[in-house]
Simulated scan of single mutants.
Amino acid sequence: MTEPDVEGLQRRLAEFAAARAWQPYHTPKNLAAALSVEAAELLEIFQWLTPEEAARVMDEPDSAHRVADEVADVLAYLLQFCGVLGVDPLRALSEKIDRNEIRFPVGRPPGRARHPDRHSSE
């Protein structure tokens, strides 16, 4: 079995949706809403856990399975969203990291981002 790649997974998701005639429902708005719901379901697993319990969530098979399923749901909707809008998610992430490296230089105190649209004496 070969390792999955982003394009292959996007193709499989599109084929899955097409086989069920779901494309009319896979609008950017609907996919963004579904992504938000699935992210909330992931958060729900951790909602009342202490930081220590949350760090051990993958030690318990049942909770590990729930986390993995919700991660898969979040990723599935994100990849479908990107596919519909033509966003390359890996390129978008790489470019965002590049911008954040400029906004948050090493050694700057936390919470002190450089805002390119604001004038400052820095």
Rank of each mutant, 00 (worst) to 15 (best):
V106R: 07
D69E: 11
A76V: 08
A18D: 14
R112W: 00
Q80N: 10
Q10P: 01
L35D: 04
T50S: 15
A18K: 13
I45Q: 02
Q23N: 12
R91T: 05
L75A: 15
S94D: 14
V74S: 02
G107I: 02
V37W: 12
R108V: 02
V106M: 09
G111D: 03
L79A: 00
L49H: 05
E53R: 08
F104S: 05
R118M: 08
W22H: 12
P109H: 07
L75R: 14
E41Y: 14
G107P: 00
V57G: 01
A72D: 10
I102C: 05
R66A: 13
L35V: 12
A33S: 13
S120M: 07
P51W: 00
Q80H: 12
D69P: 04
T50Y: 03
D73V: 05
C82N: 14
D59W: 12
V37E: 13
D88Q: 01
P89K: 00
V71R: 14
Y77D: 04
S36C: 11
P4M: 09
F46Y: 14
R99Q: 15
L13R: 01
R114W: 11
A72H: 13
E95K: 07
P110N: 06
L42P: 00
Y25A: 11
A34R: 04
V57N: 00
R99D: 02
F81A: 10
R91W: 13
R103Y: 04
F16S: 11
P110T: 07
A64V: 11
E122H: 10
A55F: 03
A17Y: 06
A17F: 01
H26L: 10
A113M: 11
E38F: 06
D5K: 05
D69N: 11
V84K: 01
Q10L: 06
S94P: 08
N100T: 07
V74P: 03
A54E: 00
T27D: 04
R103H: 09
T27Q: 05
R103K: 15
A39C: 14
E38G: 00
Y77H: 08
E44P: 11
G86M: 00
V67H: 02
E41M: 11
E60Y: 13
Q80E: 14
A39D: 05
A76Q: 03
P24C: 04
L13E: 00
G86F: 02
V37C: 04
Q80R: 10
A39T: 10
R91E: 10
V74Y: 08
H65T: 14
P89I: 06
D98Y: 13
R112V: 02
W48K: 09
N30G: 10
G111M: 02
P109L: 01
D88E: 01
R103C: 02
E70C: 05
H65R: 15
D59N: 12
V67P: 03
N100M: 15
F104L: 15
G8S: 15
P51M: 04
F46V: 04
V71G: 12
P51H: 00
L90M: 06
Q23C: 10
V71L: 15
E52G: 12
E70Y: 06
R103T: 01
E95S: 04
P110M: 07
T2R: 03
E41I: 10
V84W: 01
A17N: 10
P105S: 07
E15V: 08
G83T: 03
W22I: 10
E15S: 12
